[in-house]
Design a protein around this nucleic acid. Sequence first.
DNA 1: CGGGCAATCTTGTCAGTGACAAGTTCTGAC
DNA 2: GTCAGAACTTGTCACTGACAAGATTGCCCG
Lengths: 217, 217
Amino acid sequence: MPRTNSPDDDRPDSPDRPDTPDRPDTPGRPDRPYHHGDLRRAILRAALDVIAADGPSALSLRDLARRAGVSHAAPAHHFKDRTGLLTAIAAEGHALLASTLTEAADLRDAGVRYVRFAREHPAHFQVMFRPELLREGDLELTTARALSGERLRDAVSTARPDFGGADPRLAGIAAWSLSHGFATLLLSHNLDAVVGDRDPEDVFRTATELLFPSTGR
Amino acid sequence: MPRTNSPDDDRPDSPDRPDTPDRPDTPGRPDRPYHHGDLRRAILRAALDVIAADGPSALSLRDLARRAGVSHAAPAHHFKDRTGLLTAIAAEGHALLASTLTEAADLRDAGVRYVRFAREHPAHFQVMFRPELLREGDLELTTARALSGERLRDAVSTARPDFGGADPRLAGIAAWSLSHGFATLLLSHNLDAVVGDRDPEDVFRTATELLFPSTGR
DNA sequence: CGGGCAATCTTGTCAGTGACAAGTTCTGAC
DNA sequence: GTCAGAACTTGTCACTGACAAGATTGCCCG
């Protein structure tokens, strides 16, 4: 079942609610089909919703199973355990981040894209940089993370050739810290008062002008 | 860890093992004293240890109770619930941060102190900026947070008078983002490879020199 | 001195959760 | 067609947070 992007909210085959009254509560089998069809994706989507709303700690595998209309142990089949689910999300996030950074015109644009990524994929972002939530050995995560790191370094190298001859890794740390800090504070609502109605990305861009004095491009 | 110096490691009154045989019968009743003596502080200390080691999500009230040698419901008396405990920690953190920022010589020093605070009080830092973990209405938290925010703004105002005439709030955002991002990435071990053996605060100071071009001081 | 009150802590309980084990149903490759 | 394995279910266990009700104790006020 390809249908990668369609609105596959719930059970794909049974559009009605899972509590059709013909089988009231008998512990026998429910009338939904045995196979969900795209459980992995459904769980992932629900997990992203929950995390974006209430953070990773609010995530419950059993709740996700209920949302998908599936038994409480079904998610484990696709993700092994909670850590596995979060690891999959983090890996996906790094892949998405890498892809948007690839198109960055220069370092400042990369920073803006970093912030935009955090705003558009808050759930991914909240998970990606928390090792204690992730399965550190995971191959998919490791490669995705390596890729996004490489894109980050690429962006730094597009900056003014040398940053005054400084260690480029230091410039990378500074740029990453600035973007990451802004994104983090933004997502945790610590900048709400200052940003106000303005577009956060504009605020970020303007703030960086103060530090990187309008790079020669 | 400075190890606050008071020897309140465990039960303060009973240095001996909890199985003194004077009460042979009634297996329900342990012979430890009914009152712990300084339970609130003991719980707080244990919580900081756990959070620093494994993050806030690893925190269990029952585990803290066990560490303090106390019944599983005892912590609730002092902190109401998990959120209450984390809120108390966050408030304490903001007070500590405010106090160290008060002594900052200039903006860069404030940044360095911010990073140092995160390193010396990682548990506090990991909790302070996560609203979803905190009781938002809490009075103690609100006042402590207001104080640390004020100190942050004070530090920005000590910078080069105008930052080129820019909105001082923007300069504040930029400085805060930079420091917060560095501290966050540092604590989550995302800078381990780049920082290596060097002193993180030195790395931070050097990195900021790239952005704030050696302020006229 | 002593009575009572409030703070502190305990025991008991309930629903929710993650993890695991073992069984059931379906799918697709041969 | 069949059958191996993928996808899902049921059942269970230990653990957790929250709450309720009772026990113990320090201490204030008379």
